[in-house]
Design a protein around this nucleic acid. Sequence first.
DNA 1: CAGTGTGAATCGGTTCACAGCA
DNA 2: TGCTGTGAACCGATTCACACTG
Lengths: 232, 232
Amino acid sequence: MESNETVDRADAEASAEVVDVVPAPVPAATVDRLPSYLRALHQLVAAGVERTSSVELAELSGVGSAQLRKDLSFLGSFGTRGVGYDVGSLTDSITRRLGLETEHKVAIVGIGSLGQALANYRGYASRGFQLVALFDTAADVVGTTAGGLVVEHADDLAAVRERTGFTMVLLATPAPGAQEAVDRVVAAGVRSVLSFAPIALQVPEEVDVRAVDVGSELQILAFHSQARELRP
Amino acid sequence: MESNETVDRADAEASAEVVDVVPAPVPAATVDRLPSYLRALHQLVAAGVERTSSVELAELSGVGSAQLRKDLSFLGSFGTRGVGYDVGSLTDSITRRLGLETEHKVAIVGIGSLGQALANYRGYASRGFQLVALFDTAADVVGTTAGGLVVEHADDLAAVRERTGFTMVLLATPAPGAQEAVDRVVAAGVRSVLSFAPIALQVPEEVDVRAVDVGSELQILAFHSQARELRP
DNA sequence: CAGTGTGAATCGGTTCACAGCA
DNA sequence: TGCTGTGAACCGATTCACACTG
C-alpha cells in the first residue's frame, strides 16, 4: 500500500472511537474515470453477471486493464487474486466512495430548449440525483412546466434553495447572462455547477465548475479529423 | 523555436513547390484548450479589443498565462515581445490550425428531447459547423421537423450522407440502441462522433469518439463536494 | 522595460512487469 | 495457475524563471 498514509489510517482505526476514517487521496484523473466504471458495472448487473475481471470491466469502460486496477487500488482492495471482482460489492464500494449513497438534489437554471431537454431527462435517479427545481428569468417561461416541475423565477433562487435543499446546479442559459446567472447561484450558496454555456465562468475558488461545450468538442474533433487526413 | 522540427519546416519552405507544410505536432492537452482560447478571442473581438496579453487572454480562458504561452508556442510565434497579441490575427491563426476555415457538416442521430435541443441550437455556424441532417428510427419522429430540418430514417444514413456530405455526428440516442446507432454511423463512413449516450461505445480505432455524459459530470462534482466537506 | 517564447525543473499520470495470493 | 495489486520506469503535461526582443 502507500508509505506514509497507511500509518495514519492504521492509527485512526486503532483508536477505536473514530467512525469516519479520513480517506486516502484519490488522483483527479482517477475520479474522472470512476463514473465509467460504475456505468460498466451497472451494465453487468443488468446482464445478471455477478463476477468480473479487470480485463472485462476495463473493456466495458473503454480504458486499459492496468489503468483500471491502478485506479481501484487508490480506493482500496476489492478483488480476489486469481478470481476477479464481485460485481455487487464493487458497485457498492465505488458508489459509496463517490458519495452517492444519499441522493444529491439538483436544480436547472435556464429553461431554453437545452434546459427543457435536461429537465425531461429521466436518468437522474439511477445515477444518484434528484431534480428538484427549475429557474429562468423570462416572464413567458416562469410558471410553465417541464419534467413535472414548475419553472420559478431566478430572483427566488435563494428562497427556493432554502425550501428544496438543492446543492448542485445545471447552468443552461445562453452565453450572455451565464456569468450573472452563476453569480446568483453562488450567492445562493451552491458550490457545484455544471455549465453548458460556451464561456469561462469566473467564480470564487471554493466553487467547483465543470463545463460542457458542444462547440468546443466539435472543434476538437475537427482538429483530429484534419490531423488524420495528413497522416493516415 | 524547436530544435529538430525547425529544420524540416525551413527545408519545406525553402523548396518553393510545397504549398501545405507538414504542421508540427500539437500535444493533445493543448488541442483540448484551443477552443477556449478561440472563445475568449471572440469575446474580445465582440468588445472591440484589438490587442491583448497572455495574462488577459488566459484569464478569459480560465487557464494560467504560462500555460497559454506554452500552448501558443506549439502553433508558432504570434505575439510581439513587450506588446502582446493582435486579437484578429491570433483568432485567424487558431481558427486555421483547428481546421475551421471551411465549415464542417454535422448530422444528429436520435431526435429525442436532447436531439431536438441540439437541433434548435443556433450556435453552430459561429463555431465553424453546419447542421445538415437529422435521423431517428421511431416512425412517429421520422418526418417531423426540428431546427428547420426534416427528420430522416436512420436506415437512410449512408444515402443522406452521400447527398449532404456530413462528416460528423452528434449521437443523442438513449443508451440502449447507442451502440447499434454508432455502428450504422461508422458503416456510413463517419469518423468523428460526439456521443451523449451514457455508455462506452466500441468503434474501430480510426473512428474518433468524444463523449459527454451529464450523469458522470454530476458524479464527479459529487465526489469533489464531498471531499471539500472533509477538508474545508 | 514589458511581455513573449522557451529551455529546464517539476509534477502527475500511465504503462510495464512481476511479486503475492486465493 | 490465474488474476489482482503495486512498485518502478516511463511519458507527457504543467510550471518556473529568465533570456530575448520590439
